[in-house]
Every structure is written in C-alpha cells, then in structure tokens.
Amino acid sequence: MSGSRAEGPVVQGWCPGALRPMMSGDGLVVRVRPRSSRLTATQARGVAALSRAHGNGLIDLSARANVQLRGVTETGRLPLVEGLRDLGLIDASIAQETRRNIVVQPFHRPDDPTLTISAELAQLLALPDAPDLPGKFGFAVDTGSTRVLESTACDIRIERDGQGIVVRPDGSGLAKHVTETTAAAEALSLARWFIATGGIREGRGRMAAHLARVGLPQGFTHPTTAQGFVARPGLYDAGAMVAFTFGQMTAETLAAIAGLGDLRITPWRMIVIEGATRLPDLPGLITDPDDPLLHVVACTGAPGCVQALGPTRDLALALAPHVQGLLHVSGCAKGCAHPGAADLTLTATPQGYALIQGATAHDTPIAHHSAAALIARPDLLTE
C-alpha cells in the first residue's frame, strides 16, 4: 500500500476546472467543460495538441461528460488556458465555469429541444444574479426522444416525459410540467429554492439529501416513471459510440477520432462520433459491447492521485474477466470514479483492499484482502 494515514481522504467539495485546476500526483488536472457536452472536430484536435504540449498526453473522460487533461505543469497552465480560450472552451470567470455544470444527453436530434434548452440554461447560469451553487451541484438536460441520464449524478433534471417536458429534482419521482421555453428558467427557480431553504447549509449541498430533510417545493406533483438505459458501445442514430479503458485515452487517440467527425462527450466515459455509420478500428478504443472492461470502474489510484492509498487499475484489469455486474476499484473512500453503489467495490486502505458488496467505497466492508491474494483467488470477491 502507498500510505498509512489513519484519517480519511480530504473531500474538496468542488471539481477541477480549466480556470481552477486541481493538483494530483501526476501534476495539475485541468477539466474542460465542453458546451452542450460537445466538441467540434477542430476543438478536439486542439485539445489533443494542448495535452501533448502542456500535459503528459493522458486525457480522462469524467462522469459529468467533461474532458480532463492530466499532468499539466505549473509553467504550462497559463499557455494551456490561453489555447483553450482560443478554441472557445473557457468561461469568463471561475464562478461562471463552476456554475455551468450541465450534462447534455448525447443522442439529441435536430428536431428536439435539447441543445436549445442547454444553451439557454448556460446563459442563465452566466448572469450576474445567477444562484451561487455548491461546486458539485449539477443539471441534466435529458430531452431527447428517450431519457438516458437517469443514472447520471446531478441535482436538477430537465427531462422528456411522454410528449412533454418536466423539471424534476433529483431524489424524487415527482416532477413539474414545463415547456421548451420555460424549462431553463424553471430549473433555475428550483435551484434558488434549494438555496433559500438551506440546501447549502445542510450536508454537502446536494438536492436528494436536501429533499429528504425538507420535502418537495410546491408544484411538483407529476409522477414520472423510470425508463432505464444501459450505455454500451455501438451504432446509434446519432453516430458511433466508443468506449475507453477506465475512460482514459491518449492525446493521439483523441486526435484520431476527431478525424472522423465532431464528438459528443457522454457521462458514461464514452464518446459518440457524430454521423459515423460504422465503428472505427483504432487502437485504444473499446467497441465490443461485451468487453469485460466495461464492467470495471477504477480511479487513477496511486501514485497518480495523492490521496490514494493504493494502486487501482492493474488490479481492476486482472479481475475484470472474473466479475459479474459492476466492480469498482477505488484508491480511497471518496470513490470519485463511481460515487454510487456498485455490485462489488474494492477500496484501498492501510489494511489492504476493503471488499464491499452492493454499496459505495466508504461503506462497511465484509473483509480485507491484499491485491496479490485477490489476483490469485478472484473467488474471494464472492465468498
């Protein structure tokens, strides 16, 4: 193990951005938030070039449909930001960047309101009187023909419901009917209610936890039904969706897929290549929907993350062929790569890897094992 500290990991309470990067074990992490979760081919090639010039050439996809450049040096940070600004990928201020935490469903079509609503929501969040929301507070615009973002973490959801559109606070099955022209404003109104009723003061500033304490605001009476969606690589009406091992690629891989078209960044750590009618045969991609690597999630781990108490990805790779359901290997109890519950979780601790069943990285384990023992005996995962 790579440490012996007894205290828990430090919870920053905010996510890195481009204007406010976060230091990690391999340098600064600079997170780019593509507008409407989309990069043009030109922007994607530019991001790849900047990653090579000012970082270590590794690029992560986040669960919020963002792109993270790793290994950025202190001297390279400002030239990197200027390069991103030239590509139209920088907000006017840290506050605007932090508030523009919007995940957009990647299968939108020209005849649905997804891009219009997400653009209006971004404009409202950039206004001087926009609500000052917690750093991890987010929105989802899921107004395509079918909802696909129900398992994506966020706080306020703008969703398709039958032939109409609703705004729904995360943590509730009850929503409020809105229109295409009022959806963004209603979402902001719900965010203001969250602040006015103490959502920031109580807990870590998340909607679901706040609803459990204070209940719903008035007007949220329309019951919704979960539709469910399982993300897999393959061909879709919007294009070809490809995955990456642990959601990480090289700058060369990003440049290569940008050569095939504009890109839609998904919260499943996959990318949709717009308009593509076949799956590309390029190194570094997962295109098989049955690939066992799609069933494992792992953060950077040690030594890439200064908070990790052990390495993660070699262990996850070794165990991938032996697991059923979802396996999450986390370098610490924060569980950044997968904050929700997984079928099996291995959390690095000073005592080894804590084995947790059907819960999150910080929940109570049933056993502790060394990495060597788990690799030698994968059956320990299900004993």
Rank of each mutant, 00 (worst) to 15 (best):
L188C: 02
A298G: 04
S36C: 15
G71H: 03
G205N: 05
P303A: 03
K334C: 12
T349I: 03
V167A: 12
T347A: 03
P113E: 08
T224G: 07
Q227W: 05
Q105N: 09
E7R: 08
D237M: 04
A44N: 02
A130H: 07
I265E: 10
Q163H: 15
P267T: 06
R204V: 12
R52E: 15
P134F: 11
V166C: 11
A231C: 13
A191T: 00
T250K: 04
F246W: 10
L263N: 14
F194I: 03
V29I: 15
R147E: 00
I195F: 13
I265M: 11
I195M: 13
Q43T: 01
P34Q: 04
P9H: 00
G198W: 10
I356A: 09
T347W: 06
T364F: 08
G358A: 12
A348F: 01
L315G: 09
G135Q: 08
A371K: 04
A359G: 12
L149I: 01
P233I: 07
R269S: 09
T114E: 09
R109M: 15
V230L: 15
D155E: 05
N56A: 05
A185N: 01
L216T: 02
I165N: 11
V178M: 04
A359T: 04
P292S: 10
P134W: 06
G17M: 00
D155I: 04
V297S: 12
T75S: 13
W14Y: 13
A130Y: 07
I265F: 12
T345F: 11
L190C: 01
A191H: 01
F229H: 15
I271Q: 09
R147L: 01
V306Q: 15
P169S: 12
E252T: 13
G76Q: 02
S370Y: 06
G325Q: 02
P134M: 10
L344A: 10
T224Y: 01
G198V: 10
N56R: 03
D170T: 09
G71Y: 04
N56K: 03
P113K: 05
I158T: 08
T224W: 02
L260S: 05
R157C: 07
P113W: 06
C15A: 14
I375K: 13
M1H: 01
V178G: 07
P289G: 15
A119R: 12
L69A: 07
D142L: 10
V306M: 14
L69Q: 01
I257L: 14
I158D: 06
M23R: 12
Q307P: 03
E7P: 00
A63N: 11
R204Y: 13
G25L: 03
D314S: 11
G335C: 11
R109F: 07
G27S: 04
A187K: 00
A153M: 14
G171M: 09
L50G: 09
E150D: 11
T181R: 04
A372I: 10
W268D: 14
D132N: 04
F244M: 08
I286S: 14
L216E: 07
G335Y: 10
A320Y: 10
A48P: 03
G83R: 01
L174Y: 13
